[in-house]
Design a protein around this nucleic acid. Structure first.
Lengths: 222, 222
DNA sequence: AGTACTAAGTGTAAATACTACACTATAGGC
DNA sequence: GCCTATAGTGTAGTATTTACACTTAGTACT
């Protein structure tokens, strides 16, 4: 036990709640735990902070190691630290909220995690630690940000049609939207540019393809 | 050095950015550091997490020990963890954002801190660690929440007049507001109840006294 | 070539919300 | 009773949001 301190130190981990849209529903990325405690149960991807590593780098590294997912939108969510939240020792978990576009959701189970899979939010399995609470809070953040930012764009590939974008909003807000009003609103924000291309997908009129003018920046709107 | 671990552990601290309204301006509570590093410089109140203590409890405890301030609105802000943010060792700081009402702003310097004082936001001294960045983020949170929640109520005593409330909004938003429109808007939210009392303060018509219907709950509005 | 099918794309009118603006009411001090 | 100071109130014009239905442009099939 070579790492000694004058006062007791908690351990620090990061955990990430990654959402995507699959099969027209919001889904969450979970890993099956390969180690005790909670061996065999589903949990958020995450793990221990290395001593010279930035918090966000840790979250991205663990996510990539355990699930193969990288290159996503990520922001800090909340830090959980109830003294009894882990049976091994005192652990502070800095949690992150992330979105992957639907064109990048191939996952592969990694070293620490026996298995990794997308789960529908309404059929989540029982979860290790306080991860159910973390997911709850991540869902609230997503719902709130949908209303006042362009975070929904992060769930789509770089180019998309207005119908596809409308569908994202409809799933996130769980209501149908009027097509004309939606298009008027989204175009009035001046955040989209036409690519000039069209997408033909079936036996009907092709749709114009758009892209976010500033794809990596989540804008605050209204 | 009796506390030993198999892997290196960072230290965890909490720091709190406490705002209040004094002298018709937004002010921030700072302590002068009594210890190295940055001895003698101003910093946010805060300190090391005890091993069986909840994060928020730690923030409140350190605040009370160093400044005497307690009984306030507090919420988690962000967790800062750049590897080089403290010269002593790796320290993760879970930061909090807090507001005290103007009737509770007596402070007294405590044990660790040589001195504690309110500072106007536009005349802040040079700050220890990355605390300027934390304050920056706290100010942004306050400005944002002013627009979509009833957080401003937390800067007033339990009972107040509509003119006093309007004044809080004017300071926070840094613009004058129309009296009639403000009153129409705030009353239409149905979050205030008249106490039936009136406040006489000077030789003019007395003002009705109101209270928040649900004073401890910050509501999301609009 | 013509017809059926499907999703893309488009405008207007009514309702609602927001903004600008000025006078009357009620207390204390003299 | 008159002065002073802040409390308290309504309305009309403007901007924003909502509700709503038909035409367009492609493919597939005959």
């Amino acid at each position: 036990m070579p790492y000694c301190y004058e006062y007791p130190h908690p351990a620090v981990t990061t955990d990430v709640a990654v959402f995507t849209l699959r099969q027209q529903q919001l889904q969450l990325l979970l890993v099956r735990r390969g180690e005790d405690p909670y061996r065999g149960m589903w949990a958020l991807p995450g793990g221990f902070l290395e001593i010279d590593e930035d918090l966000e780098s840790c979250a991205k590294r663990e996510l990539k190691e355990e699930t193969g997912v990288s290159d996503l939108y990520i922001e800090q969510l909340f830090t959980f630290g109830r003294p009894d939240r882990d049976p091994r020792e005192r652990i502070i978990s800095v949690t992150y909220f992330a979105l992957v576009p639907s064109n990048k959701l191939e996952i592969r189970a990694g070293s620490d995690a026996a298995d990794a899979a997308w789960h529908s939010l309404n059929t989540l399995p029982e979860l290790a630690f306080d991860h159910a609470e973390i997911i709850q809070q991540a869902q609230e953040r997503l719902a709130a940000k949908t209303l006042y930012s362009t975070i929904a764009f992060q769930l789509l590939p770089p180019t998309f049609t207005l119908s596809e974008l409308q569908s994202v909003y409809e799933i996130l807000r769980n209501e149908t939207l009027d097509k004309r009003n939606f298009r008027k609103w989204i175009l009035s924000l001046n955040l989209l540019t036409e690519t000039g291309e069209k997408r033909m997908s079936g036996n009907h009129r092709p749709a114009k393809i758009y892209q976010a003018t500033n794809p990596d920046h989540v804008e605050i709107i209204r």
